[in-house]
Nucleic acid binder design. Structure first.
Lengths: 342, 342
DNA sequence: AAGACAATTGTAAGCGGTTACATTTTGTAG
DNA sequence: CTACAAAATGTAACCGCTTACAATTGTCTT
């Protein structure tokens, strides 16, 4: 039913090889026949069948995007950047939600391989993600987005992340500069490297300022509101009595703010809160959240660009691109008033 | 390099036809050989090439999802439902952001057709979307998600939407019951049918209560914060002086709240605001937004289920499924205190 | 005008499966 | 033990396109 190169060939009185040549701008075709073939294609409203060409060329112009959850604004932003780049370069993306599960990730990967996708954009990697390692060993083109693995150096992976150590550092430093000395730190899952890095930044700032870290006031969780809420309640009821909280993402920070309000305190007057990510939520909560901005869309875009270049064979060794982070100061932070802690 | 049915056939001492039969559970294969072939597949770690089979079977187990913007939480939720269902039924989804542009939509559609996807989930349709009409005429399986077109009846389309008339009605009715008589209404683009429907619900509630609608207090926009902000400023500075605002999505409502605060009024004490969608934003803004809940994830899931059934030939005529909407009451609304309007 | 070489164009064999149809095996009634 | 239908298996064409290689045509030299 649909028109094929055979139809074009017949109508233009050439062989299918010639049709294929004008289709791919490959091989030598005289200008005269090229035009004739093109005209026939127009007339017959021909569109090439990507599946058929994929069978021999092994390229589907399709990429797989593995993220934990598209309903999470952070990943939605990344995904948007990825899709924008894909579209700009003539690729499409298949979106997969792994829900932080290695098994789901593995299932998707095997499915997508069967579909001959050209490469993977992986944003769900744990620091020692076996799925990723396996892909790399099998020499499958991929790029790590937002999350690095442990020994990416030496391997031909491109990694696009943002400067998490700096992010943790500037957030904490800002609180310290405001006079806070007792600062809690709510992190995401330790299996995700960014959390270790943000913690590192936090610790560095604390150490530089000669401040002690209260062990009960540092905790790993799961990046969700509930965690921020519960952990903050726990911390505030415990021995540490922090005057400020640094949370490793906006959702956790929002949970922290709720907990504070729930206990009858005020943000920022009694306790300052800094978040991380600068999702659209940050400017909408009350008070608007001071937070570390990551260039999520840009990260997604750049990662995809790199992957496509790799697929096209334009890249050899792997590279790690670190995008800058910066603090966006809003209303959830203020000078420390709680002097009884000093 | 990769193992094919030929390898399996040779190793299991059968023909490729038999291998294909056990692969698809089609045709008659004796239990004995079936087991033998399966074992060889295991041993050789065989995975079928979807592309090759797609060439003859014309099925790629892949669906196209067309949405305006994945970074918009509303569509992200829909997309999550869609992807969940796809995954449950063994399909994958290709995500496309149309940015509300018919041209972009058309481009994606033609690209995806070349890739032989099995069907479309379209959530970006204007009420008279020509792209959709064309697809329907070409008999391409598709389902409309969240947005209906004008004359979907009679055509073999499945449509999954939520009850927008009711949504507009209950939101407005609630405000009326709180004593508000002068209620503004901020709508999205009139080219999207849901806005007409929500307006219809609004008008119905107003009429039933015998209230007059102030023409300057009703306006179409673009579903964004900025619109809510600007339009609200305009309305509040105009002749209408409403005591409550019904906005056709949460972002617009948030914009309206900003405008109100900007003018030095308070929400809800001076002006009540109701939103629409119940995105996660609604519970995070200050004050938490009273809004109409739509079952977005469920909508996405059901739509995808229907599409897959249609692809499998299990459905004939089109059906329109209308999911219920309900009001979620939070803190952005209260009894009307502004008596000088009466 | 013939020969040499380059530029075009065509032929046919895949790519990895599916499937109609032919062939062989098996099972069972007579 | 035949005879014959049913079950199992094999053969080969095809899906729509790419591409190595062969064949043809065109251009220039001498």
């Amino acid at each position: 039913m649909p028109v094929t190169i055979y139809d074009i060939a017949k109508e233009a009185r050439v062989s299918i090889a010639t049709v294929s040549r004008v289709l791919n701008n490959s091989g030598a075709v005289s200008e005269k026949t090229r035009l004739r073939v093109k005209k026939v294609m127009e007339q017959l409203n021909y569109t090439p069948n990507v599946i058929a060409s994929a069978l021999t060329k092994k390229s589907t112009l399709t990429l797989g995007l593995l993220i934990p959850d598209i309903a999470n604004p952070f990943f939605a932003e990344l995904a948007r950047g990825v899709e924008d780049a894909s579209s700009d370069f003539g690729f499409n993306i298949i979106m997969c939600n792994t829900d932080y599960s290695s098994d789901k990730e593995a299932t998707y990967i095997s499915l997508l391989k069967q579909k001959s996708i050209d490469g993977f954009i992986i944003s769900s990697a744990y620091y020692n993600d076996q799925n990723v390692i396996k892909l790399l060993k099998a020499n499958v083109p991929l790029v790590l987005l937002g999350r690095d693995i442990d020994d990416s150096e030496g391997l031909p992976v491109d990694v696009v992340v943002s400067n998490n150590v700096k992010g943790g550092y500037i957030a904490t430093k800002y609180l310290i500069d405001l006079g806070h000395k007792n600062i809690a730190c709510l992190l995401g899952p330790p299996r995700i490297k960014v959390n270790l890095e943000r913690e590192k930044g936090y610790l560095k700032a604390m150490e530089e300022a000669g401040l002690k870290v209260c062990p009960e006031a540092v905790g790993y969780g799961d990046f969700k509101i509930e965690f921020g809420l519960k952990k903050t309640l726990e911390i505030l009821k415990g021995p540490c009595k922090p005057t400020a909280i640094f949370a490793a993402n906006d959702l956790t920070a929002i949970g922290a703010m709720r907990a504070i309000k729930h206990l009858g305190w005020r943000v920022p007057d009694d306790i300052s809160v800094v978040g991380y990510d600068n999702t659209m939520l940050a400017e909408m909560v009350d008070p608007p959240l001071t937070t570390v901005n990551q260039q999520m869309r840009k990260m997604g875009y750049i990662a995809t660009e790199l992957l496509i270049k790799r697929i096209k064979g334009e890249r050899g060794v792997g590279e790690k691109i670190v995008l800058d982070t910066e603090l966006v100061i809003r209303k959830s932070t203020c000078r420390c008033k709680n002097v009884d802690i000093l």
